[in-house]
Design a protein around this nucleic acid. Structure first.
Lengths: 215, 215, 215, 215
DNA sequence: AATGAATGAGCTTTCATTCAT
DNA sequence: TATGAATGAAAGCTCATTCAT
């Protein structure tokens, strides 16, 4: 069906290492979404990928490293794209930049069920696993600082004397996390677009001259 | 004279049963906080409780049921107390009621590390475990409806024509979840009091005539 | 049949830890003798012992530790009994003491097939396993020194001016090792009694006034 | 003109085949000496040889056959050279022949660490592996018979009425085995030259008119 | 009601072997 | 001939659960 499978399902074909790794990571994401972190087994992952049991250890050495690679796969993409928005100088104005951030945080790509499931699965274990915790901290100094900087610029531009950039950034970050979580757990109750409206509302309250509640 | 009270000293046996259960649930909470959901074993739980290996199955039948009981122990307490605030008619005014909600959500008891760890550990698995999901949904119809009702009342009282009670409630719920999560993962970066300030800020933006950003 | 088995083979009976451990060590010895060190699996050992798969890890933590315990079981017994002969002051004379050593080294108990098989199985790996090596070194300083002392006393007593106690001891130790090995590998070619005659011959050559070649 | 020699450059292909095999056998010896028989994996052997993983199976069909070939490589060399000494008629006298045997058995080439390690690694498994056992039996009828014959000749020549050629041969064989083993396991305690002195002592005791203890 | 030795299914991991290239 | 990615049987280990005591 796809480019990875021949008509003969049993044919063994060597593929570039990176391709196999991504294939396995994708399968791991699906497994996490379907069965939770505790339900992930090498057998399930490799079956999901349509490959043999031994292949995951061949490419990742251990289950732990496969899981870590999966977490990194999900977070690296988000961090990279978010950073490019926060650091960009190509937006016509600050309002457009914030608007882009908002669109990005609730885009289909970012809120994809599998990714969210991976994200929160690891967060649930993060407290007791320093390695997970480090990777999970999307509010790392860089990210939070960049956002605070952006909000500070908006504040100065718009003369919102009573608004605190740092608190607003921390709030936005937490709000997005919470909205993702609620959307993941109960997508019916909080569909993606409603989540985005809530986030927009938050920014509109903080920066009424820049962001309007209605879209 | 129920079975719980009797002059005969032997009748107190009925009490120890509940005591044992709570002892085991407390030990489970500690284990989850220390080692994550995946690190919980019957041996660790019973050792932590200072009891024998077999006792958990004796009182809870299975590990799954012990975990469920632990999750319920944590959520039931929260839900009960939150509900009593939301349904109370004893507050002098709506502002005081919201203030109480805010104090409650960021009280030391609610944000206790062990409880938060349990909460998010299960949330991480909730997507794939309907049973967990059901218990985790603190934004169940009741809770969300009560909060929406409260906010609606405030809106009518304060004449905030542009504020949507439902969105504001969904936002508050998500914001609290996100703040808890960030506080749990990185308490240094987001201490409890800062989290509360952020939440207060949110409510102050929505209801400026009722809630002030400064405390 | 034995005291360890009930008529109902499936009955699960808790036994003192030491009894179970010895049972498992005995089974391990049999497995090593039958299939070699590389043929030892936890499944084979526990089946041989008539117990369940998990029990070896329960009592020994790991396969490695079970193997080590088995090696120690075999060597400790030998070392203890040999030492008691070498250090004894109860023999009427030195000739009797050496005679006792000889009888001991080729007694049925010491040359028992299972023990020898364990001994040489580990020696084969000893070169690359420091832990095995340490335990295997029966010619440890104590043992070799004691034997050299005994031979020195004989030399002085018998006036063998040309005999070197140290070399004779090293030779006896090596000869016994070699005889054991040949007896183990080809018992037909070198039965136990022939092996003992060879060893006796060696000692008779060294100490003709004390030991006679014929028995 | 056999297939091994030809003016056509392509015919040398027949040689590399043997070269590859020896390369792999040498690598196997190193692996056994370094990690023991149980630590030998095809991956390690081929890496050690600087070749690709598949090549060992290509040339030896299976791991078992590679191991067997390695054992044979080590024993065949020994057996051939020992036999040539025992069967030679070129020595000026019997004493010189025995002297040659002694020098040979403790030559650097024979006692090379890698070879000894291989030898005893297989001996450790020999009890349970008839194939190994057959190859390991250096005291095969031929060898032992030849040595007994040599000793018998010495006995007749020297008039040692009380010496038994068969027992003395069995003793020499066992002593050499034991000395090798002790030298392998603890080369510090029993260096090669000391081992040879012990063996010489043995022969000097048996045949004082032919062999002198001092060298 | 309580204990903890015993069980065995299920997991991760290793590695000889295969085979498309 | 040679390569090394892929396979999957077989191994060690973990741990929820059972049950004789």
């Amino acid at each position: 069906m796809t480019k990875n499978s021949n008509s003969d399902g049993k044919t063994r074909r060597a593929l570039p290492k990176e391709v196999r790794k991504e294939q396995l990571i994708r399968a791991t994401m699906k497994c996490i979404a379907r069965s939770g972190l505790s339900g992930v087994t090498m057998a399930r992952v490799t079956t999901e990928a349509g490959l043999s049991l031994g292949i995951a250890n061949l490419h990742f050495e251990s289950k732990e490293k496969l899981l870590l690679a999966t977490l990194q796969y999900v977070t690296a993409e988000y961090n990279r794209d978010q950073k490019s928005i926060l650091e960009s100088r190509d937006y016509p104005n600050l309002a457009a930049q914030i608007e882009a951030l908002l669109q990005f945080d609730f885009s289909a790509a970012v809120t994809e069920k599998n990714k969210m499931a991976v994200w929160f699965a690891f967060l649930g274990e993060a407290k007791s696993r320093p390695t997970y915790q480090r990777i999970c901290s999307r509010q790392d100094s860089t990210s939070e600082a960049l956002m605070t900087g952006l909000f500070q610029a908006v504040i100065e531009e718009g003369a919102y004397p009573d608004t605190n950039a740092e608190l607003t950034a921390a709030g936005y970050i937490a709000l997005v996390d919470g909205l993702w979580l609620n959307t993941l757990v109960a997508p019916r109750r909080l569909p993606r677009k409603k989540a985005r409206r809530v986030a927009r509302q938050y920014l509109a309250s903080a920066f009424p001259q820049h962001i309007s509640p209605e879209f």
